[in-house]
Lab assay of single mutants.
Amino acid sequence: YETDHQDYCEVCQQGGEIILCDTCPRAYHLVCLDPELDRAPEGKWSCPHCEKE
């Protein structure tokens, strides 16, 4: 299903190369994640907010 994702990072509120959560509309820079990621994850990815739930 399609979600309207943010076009900015949930953490720093800036645009650029962001990865999109497959569960919610949030988006993140790899370096803004904690722990940060070296590269975009393959397959489905859930953001830290969704992982907690």
Rank of each mutant, 00 (worst) to 15 (best):
His29Arg: 01
Asp4Tyr: 08
Asp7Glu: 05
Tyr1Phe: 02
Lys52Glu: 05
Glu36Asp: 02
Gly43Lys: 13
Asp4Phe: 10
Asp7Ala: 12
Lys52Asp: 03
His49Val: 14
Glu51Gln: 02
Thr3Val: 10
Glu36Gln: 07
Cys9Gln: 02
His29Ser: 00
Glu17Phe: 07
Cys9Glu: 02
Asp7Thr: 11
Cys9Arg: 02
Glu36Ser: 04
Cys47Arg: 01
Leu37Gly: 09
Cys9Thr: 01
Ile18Asn: 06
Gln14Phe: 05
Glu42His: 14
Tyr8Asn: 13
Pro41Phe: 05
Val11Phe: 14
Asp22Met: 12
Glu17Trp: 02
Asp34Val: 09
Ile18Phe: 10
Glu10Met: 05
Ala27Gly: 03
Cys9Pro: 01
Tyr1Val: 14
Ile18Glu: 14
Ala40Cys: 04
Pro35Ala: 12
Glu17Cys: 11
Asp34Ile: 04
Trp45Asp: 03
Asp7Trp: 01
Glu51Gly: 07
Thr3Gln: 10
Gln14Ala: 10
Val31Ala: 14
His5Ser: 15
Glu42Met: 06
Ile19Thr: 12
Glu36Asn: 14
Glu51Cys: 08
Gln14Pro: 00
Glu2Ala: 05
Pro35Tyr: 12
Gln6Arg: 08
Glu36Ala: 11
Glu2Ser: 14
Glu10His: 13
Pro41Gly: 12
Asp38Pro: 08
Cys24Gln: 00
Thr3Cys: 10
Glu42Cys: 12
Leu30Cys: 13
Tyr8Asp: 10
Cys21Pro: 00
Cys9Ile: 02
Glu42Tyr: 06
His29Leu: 01
Cys21Phe: 00
Ile19Gln: 13
Trp45Arg: 06
Trp45Gly: 04
Arg39Phe: 05
Asp22Asn: 12
Tyr28Ser: 05
Cys50Ser: 02
His49Pro: 04
Cys12Met: 01
Pro25Thr: 12
His49Thr: 11
Glu2Val: 06
Asp34Cys: 04
Asp7Leu: 01
Ala27Thr: 02
Glu17Arg: 08
His5Met: 15
Glu36Trp: 03
Ile19Asn: 14
Cys24Phe: 00
Lys44Gly: 13
Asp34Asn: 07
Glu51Ser: 07
Glu53Ala: 05
Leu33Ser: 05
Cys9Trp: 01
Leu20Asn: 13
Thr3Asn: 09
Glu53Gly: 09
Ile19Asp: 05
His49Asn: 15
Lys44His: 12
Gly15Arg: 11
Arg39Tyr: 11
Gln6Gly: 05
Arg26Ile: 03
Cys12Trp: 01
Cys32Glu: 02
Pro41Asp: 04
Cys21Glu: 00
Gly16Tyr: 12
Glu51His: 03
Asp34Gln: 09
Thr23Gln: 03
Thr23Met: 12
Glu42Leu: 13
Leu30Ala: 13
Glu10Arg: 12
Cys32Tyr: 01
Asp7Lys: 10
Glu53Asp: 04
Gln13Asn: 09
Gly16Cys: 05
Arg26Tyr: 08
Ile19Val: 08
Cys21Tyr: 01
Leu30Thr: 10
Tyr1Arg: 04
Asp38Asn: 02
Gly16Lys: 15
Leu20Ser: 14
Arg39Thr: 11
Asp7Met: 09
Leu30Gln: 07
Cys12Ala: 01
Ala27Lys: 03
Cys12Val: 01
Ser46Ala: 10
Leu33Gln: 07
Ala40Ser: 06
Gly15Phe: 15
Pro48Thr: 06
Tyr8Met: 14
Leu30Ser: 06
Tyr28Asp: 02
Glu42Phe: 05
Asp7Pro: 14
Arg26Gln: 15
Leu20Gln: 08
Lys44Phe: 08
Lys44Ile: 15
Trp45Glu: 09
Ile18Arg: 09
His49Asp: 07
Val31Lys: 08
Leu37Pro: 08
Gln6His: 11
Ala40Leu: 09
Thr23Phe: 11
Glu17Gln: 08
Cys50Phe: 01
Pro25Cys: 12
